[in-house]
Computed example of a mutant assay.
Amino acid sequence: MASNLVFKLLRLPVTSKIACLRSGRLFRGKVAAVAAGTRPSSGTLPEKISRYPIPYKKDLPYDIVELMEEVESKGGFLPNVFKALSHRPAEFRAFFAYYNELMNKDTGGLTKADRELIIVATSSHNKCLYCVVSHSALHRVYSKKPTLADQVIVNYQIADLTPRERAMLDFAMAVCRCDTITDEHFLSLEEVGFDREDAWDIAAIAAFFAMSNRLAHLTDMKPNLEFFNMGRVPRDKSKNTTEM
């Protein structure tokens, strides 16, 4: 159930939003200026999500607000990447459209846990706190292995990986480090069951999240506290009133 919840939390129905994306309509909901970020209670400091301004919901295009509210309703919280990237709505749309194509596709030889583990390994190499924390959480949920991502963060080469996972991460890290890619890299993947299209997927995930890592560095993006315990402790279903 938890795996299904997280999948729905991050699954972005891009095609159903295209008309809204192009229309430029602004959110016409509540008039109150409620920010996309968390509003602090009286006498407390505001939550620091990004060094760039977090737009008010009333100033964001309708489709982005709708997506944020859907994600928060289904998942119980809104990942800070949505808030931080809403600073540039056009880039927000492009980012999540490509994210959806890479991470939520139903074809190819990569599982959802595989995809998350690639992100954990490459983001650790790139020293990206946000992606390491958030995608470790998703890997724990999908894999049901609460300690493997932690091992990969420290040193994937001595982690308790299967030969298949090790070959996958070796290839992802070669792309991440900008090593010269040779036929030997592809042969190593083929020996454990991956084909050339899977190799493209592994490389594309490593490449896309290299960009994501650097945006997180730029913005000083902070991971939500909810991510730290996700997949380690039972989910508090009382926070989610929407039937999944």
Rank of each mutant, 00 (worst) to 15 (best):
S143W: 08
D183R: 12
L117K: 09
F82Y: 15
V154W: 09
V152P: 10
D198F: 08
L102S: 12
G76V: 09
T122E: 01
L161F: 14
V81H: 09
A174W: 04
H185Y: 10
R140K: 10
H125N: 01
L85H: 07
C128K: 05
A97L: 00
R164T: 10
S86C: 12
F186N: 02
D170V: 03
I153S: 01
F171A: 13
A94K: 13
P146K: 07
G76M: 09
E101R: 14
S134P: 04
H87M: 00
L189D: 07
R164P: 02
R140T: 03
E190Y: 07
G76R: 04
L117T: 12
K83E: 06
P89M: 06
D106H: 12
L138K: 03
K105C: 11
T147N: 15
F186S: 06
K112S: 10
E197W: 00
L110V: 11
D179A: 11
L102A: 13
M103D: 03
R88D: 06
I119Q: 05
S123M: 05
V81I: 15
T147H: 14
P89R: 02
I153D: 05
P79F: 09
V192W: 06
A174R: 14
G109T: 06
I181S: 10
A174Q: 11
D106A: 15
Q157M: 11
L148K: 02
S134C: 08
E91M: 11
S73H: 02
E116I: 09
E184G: 13
A172I: 13
V132T: 14
R164I: 05
Y99M: 06
D106C: 01
L138Q: 05
R93S: 08
V152A: 08
A172C: 12
V175M: 11
A94M: 11
F95S: 00
E101K: 11
A94E: 15
L189A: 05
E165M: 07
S136R: 08
E101W: 00
C176E: 14
N100W: 00
R140E: 01
C131Y: 11
E190P: 01
S123C: 09
Y98C: 07
S124Y: 08
N100H: 12
R88E: 05
P79V: 01
V154D: 13
L110Y: 12
F96L: 14
D201A: 11
G108Q: 02
V152H: 07
E190G: 10
A113H: 05
L161E: 08
I153R: 14
I153A: 05
A90S: 09
K144Q: 13
F194M: 01
V141M: 08
H135C: 03
L78Y: 12
E72I: 01
A94I: 13
L161I: 04
A167E: 07
C176M: 10
S86A: 15
T162I: 06
F95G: 00
